[in-house]
Amino acid sequence: MPHPILTDLETIASSTAAENGFDLCGVKVFTHLKPMTMQVQIRHIGGGDVSLEECASFSAPMGEAIETSQLLNEAYVLEISSPGIDDQLVNDRDFQTFRGFPIEVAYRNDQGSELRQAGLLHKRSTDHVHLNIKGKINRILRKDVIAVHLTRLKG
């Protein structure tokens, strides 16, 4: 179950990222950690890599925005990073950027069971996610897709 203030934190993180030239890729809140940890993932609006220095410099305005919002009334750790391997592909830019990369698609079949298929990302069309599996293109209906994650090549 998501933290009750996650939506508000995502809104703050998204606007703060945009003000600083970044797109927000995701926010996670780990309340089981002491102190609580908030992870914010960003990337450049133009799609370029975010350096360690840029993550560090974004920490100050992000922390200031959280403090100003007064949403968190307990100690927390703020972690800023950029997406990397094992991350979920979500938007069109993700699917274009990682074309040809190894992915795993979790999806539901007609009986409602969850299945997984791994291969190289060929493309995502309006209706399907296309995987290259040993030279053969397999299509999975987008409406059945639960998640698409980057994976490491098995070798």
Rank of each mutant, 00 (worst) to 15 (best):
M1I: 10
H3A: 07
H3F: 13
I5T: 14
L6I: 03
L6E: 11
T7M: 13
T7I: 12
T7H: 14
D8I: 07
L9T: 02
L9F: 02
E10C: 02
T11I: 12
T11N: 14
A13G: 05
S14V: 01
S14Q: 09
S15P: 07
A18H: 03
E19K: 14
D23W: 01
G26C: 04
V29R: 05
V29H: 05
V29G: 09
F30I: 10
T31P: 15
T31K: 15
H32A: 15
P35C: 10
T37L: 13
T37N: 12
M38C: 15
V40A: 02
V40W: 00
Q41R: 15
I42R: 01
H44G: 11
H44T: 08
G48C: 04
G48N: 13
G48M: 03
S51Q: 00
L52A: 07
L52R: 05
E53F: 06
C55E: 05
S57W: 01
S57E: 08
S57Q: 07
F58D: 06
S59L: 09
S59G: 07
M62G: 08
G63C: 04
I66V: 08
Y76E: 02
V77H: 15
E79S: 02
I80L: 05
S81H: 01
S82D: 03
S82P: 05
P83H: 11
P83S: 09
G84Y: 06
I85C: 12
Q88E: 14
Q88P: 08
Q88M: 12
V90I: 11
N91F: 12
D92Q: 07
D92E: 15
D94E: 06
D94V: 01
D94M: 00
F95Y: 12
Q96E: 13
F98H: 14
F98I: 04
R99P: 10
G100D: 06
F101Y: 13
P102L: 02
P102K: 09
I103H: 04
E104W: 03
V105W: 00
V105S: 01
Y107G: 09
Y107K: 08
N109V: 06
N109M: 07
D110V: 14
Q111G: 12
G112M: 06
R116M: 13
Q117M: 04
Q117N: 14
Q117H: 09
A118S: 07
G119N: 04
L120I: 06
L120P: 10
L121N: 06
K123D: 09
R124N: 12
R124T: 11
R124V: 05
R124E: 06
L131Y: 02
L131K: 05
I133T: 09
I137Q: 09
N138F: 07
I140R: 01
K143D: 08
V145C: 07
A147N: 11
V148N: 01
R152H: 15
K154D: 12
K154Q: 15
K154W: 14
